[in-house]
Design a protein around this nucleic acid. Structure first.
Lengths: 190, 190
DNA sequence: ACGCGCTGTTAGCAGTCGTTAACAGGCCGG
DNA sequence: CCGGCCTGTTAACGACTGCTAACAGCGCGT
């Protein structure tokens, strides 16, 4: 019994890769280093992944799918006023950024080290995630044109994704509350 | 007469390197590619720079010095209320981020590809720049503790530095005005 | 006119990278 | 007990990298 966590090695490798890629960049981490960091050495990684790029692809496709799904979920039912939806989106995003800062870093740093097919997929997911925010902002502020809404959405992502940059020795909930409040306040400028 | 732009090649190389590093990352650009992009080929770059790392160092030291100097200048004379100083800082930073988005990208993406001495220097400059913002925020909001002020400063940098991410087909002045307004509005949450 | 410094070239070297090949031990179903 | 799969090892290959060496044309001061 007690299935020995099928794919537990895989997940360990993915988590370690996320941390190392975030710290040194995709090209700055060798297969040998990554292997050593999980206790195996070098080419053993090829028992779990077809190659280095595939590893990055799995990380980035996964994070962009989770963001898009989370955004869609909170914006869907059209239940809730635009303001409530926007608050839910902010809460979701800030929680994500605080929980997995490495993935946030890797996603916009190493996107173009992906093979073409995966990069297109990730780009499309990112675009639809942005559009969820744009639609919500436009419903909240009728008359706001799409271009400005898009700029505002990206600005908010930059604000919320700033967690990896600040040392943030403070408690995560306090940081989350502060970023949430700043993001929502910034929308008053629209 | 008409000095033939002493160092014009140097500056051309630096500008091209900034663009390429921003697009593909430091490790993603080879000396040969960089040479080809400026019309010379490969090792000719060593006539102008002692090495690849020195090139990156010059870019990053330069940008962090300019940011620190610009921030210090606008915060110095203690002329102006804290709110005026803060508005000047925002204007300065957003103009910088819009004028040289590649440098913004390279600075936080490839900082740790610098040789130790240069990285320490850049880190120190960045720290004092942040502290200028922290001090101003604390003068504006007495009772705001330094940790929260630091988080808020980083969040504002993320917001203002979002320009490279959004396509921003709009006119730069409009984007600048929007980001400025959002940044200043976000401070109301403090 | 001469020589030198500046800026460019090509050839080649040493090191590192991702990846494949060949091999081996452990576990588990028949 | 046996045979295969899973997961690991080390050795080696080819490609590419940053960098150096050796050489050459050009322009300018004396």
């Amino acid at each position: 019994m007690t299935v020995p966590r099928v794919g537990s090695r895989r997940e360990q490798i993915l988590a370690t890769a996320a941390a190392l890629f975030a710290k040194h960049g995709f090209h700055g981490v060798s297969i040998a280093e990554l292997g050593a960091a999980v206790g195996i050495s070098g080419p053993a990684l090829y028992r779990h992944f077809p190659g280095k790029e595939a590893l990055l692809a799995e990380l980035l496709v996964d994070i962009s799918e989770r963001l898009e799904a989370g955004g869609r979920e909170r914006a869907a039912g059209s239940a809730g006023s635009p303001r409530e939806v926007l608050e839910a989106l902010v809460d979701f995003h800030v929680a994500f950024a605080l929980r997995e800062p490495e993935l946030i870093v890797v996603q916009d740093r190493d996107l173009d080290n992906l093979p073409d097919a995966d990069r297109r997929r990730v780009r499309r997911l990112q675009r639809t995630y942005v559009e969820i925010w744009v639609d919500t902002l436009q419903r909240l502020h009728p008359g706001l044109d799409a271009e400005r809404a898009r700029t505002a959405a990206h600005a908010t992502f930059g604000l919320l994704n700033s967690t990896p940059h600040s040392g943030s020795r403070a408690a995560p909930e306090e940081v989350a509350a502060l970023l949430r409040a700043m993001a929502l306040a910034s929308f008053r400028a629209l």
